[in-house]
Amino acid sequence: MERQMMATAVTLSQIQQQLATVADNIANVGTTGYMSRNAQFSDLLDQQINNIDRNGDTVDSGARLTPAGIRSGSGTRIGDTQLDLSEGSIQATNNPLDVALSSDHQMFLIGVNGGVAYTRAGAFNAQADPQNPNVLNLVTKSGDPVLDQNSRPIRLPAGYNDLQISGNGTITAIMRNGNRVNAGRLGRVTILRPQLLESQGNGLYTLQNLGRLGIGLNQVVQPVGAGNNSVNQGKLENANVDLTKEMSELINLQRNYQLNARSLTMRDQMSGLVNSILH
């Protein structure tokens, strides 16, 4: 009895975690560049319980069609939370500093705390450089520098009249006198193992300690070449959350939670009944 109550309690805690994942997806349905997550359940260890006599031999009551004994489970747990890097819907903004990626698993390079982070949220800004009035820094909404294909901060010439970003991410600033200045190319990578990304908030992701996992960076991240035209200027990518699917999942999880909670209550009531009879 206590064994089954513990298994049910473990399952309830895991359902709560999946509910939090679904709720997070629904809450970010309007967040630019948000990538949804999907939690996957797996069974915990089972234990074989046999009827043993004093000599340690299995006692069976005769011929039977089912295996002897009872297999008792320990509940379920969330085995993995997969990050979905598929493309969301693209929305036009007509802002020359807004860019969206039209290829799955691609991400922009962002500089964070001296390292590199990744994002699909392409709502960028031009920020004045306090050390050089002739330069503007291309940054995210949080002020983090946007990096080029060589992981260097992208700088724009101050006073430009127009800005053009080609399909391969090449940035061209058109000055008031008509001169065209090449300001670099947006850094893009393809993420081969999304499960190794850790969310840092604001649509940013960083990699786990690959050395500890025994994995090389080239096994997880690959640069996107200049021949790939996945960059769309004047557009933003909406969250790739399927609201209908998430709402259906939320209803199913709520029902599973209610069923397990009711099972736990009934077991508690039966234990009380047995105790009252014995005493």
Rank of each mutant, 00 (worst) to 15 (best):
93 T>R: 04
82 Q>F: 08
76 T>I: 11
121 A>C: 12
122 G>E: 01
95 N>M: 08
46 D>V: 09
86 S>E: 13
81 T>E: 06
126 A>W: 01
9 A>E: 10
35 M>V: 15
78 I>S: 04
39 A>Y: 03
110 I>V: 13
71 R>Y: 13
89 S>M: 15
31 T>L: 10
61 S>R: 11
13 S>H: 11
93 T>N: 06
33 G>K: 01
128 A>M: 13
69 G>T: 05
108 F>N: 00
100 A>G: 03
55 N>K: 13
9 A>C: 07
118 Y>C: 02
93 T>P: 02
56 G>C: 08
101 L>F: 06
40 Q>H: 14
10 V>G: 06
31 T>G: 06
16 Q>T: 11
44 L>E: 02
48 Q>M: 14
63 A>S: 11
11 T>N: 04
89 S>D: 15
32 T>R: 03
98 D>L: 02
127 Q>P: 08
79 G>D: 10
46 D>G: 14
30 G>Y: 09
69 G>A: 09
55 N>F: 15
107 M>Y: 03
111 G>T: 04
46 D>W: 15
126 A>P: 00
74 S>M: 13
102 S>E: 11
36 S>C: 08
12 L>H: 05
75 G>V: 02
40 Q>T: 14
111 G>I: 03
43 D>M: 13
97 L>Y: 03
122 G>I: 02
127 Q>T: 05
108 F>S: 00
110 I>P: 00
72 S>C: 13
37 R>M: 12
108 F>W: 05
52 I>K: 10
13 S>T: 14
83 L>V: 11
94 N>G: 10
67 P>L: 12
36 S>W: 00
32 T>W: 02
24 D>Y: 07
109 L>N: 01
38 N>G: 12
122 G>R: 00
6 M>Q: 13
34 Y>N: 03
64 R>H: 15
11 T>E: 05
95 N>V: 08
90 I>A: 05
83 L>R: 08
91 Q>Y: 13
98 D>P: 03
52 I>R: 09
5 M>G: 07
8 T>H: 05
107 M>H: 07
84 D>S: 09
24 D>L: 09
50 N>R: 13
44 L>C: 09
16 Q>C: 10
23 A>Q: 11
80 D>F: 12
119 T>C: 05
39 A>E: 06
96 P>H: 03
33 G>A: 09
41 F>K: 06
39 A>P: 04
111 G>Y: 01
106 Q>T: 06
44 L>V: 05
10 V>W: 01
15 I>S: 01
100 A>N: 00
34 Y>L: 04
123 A>T: 14
109 L>V: 12
19 L>K: 02
83 L>A: 04
13 S>I: 14
99 V>E: 00
5 M>I: 11
42 S>P: 02
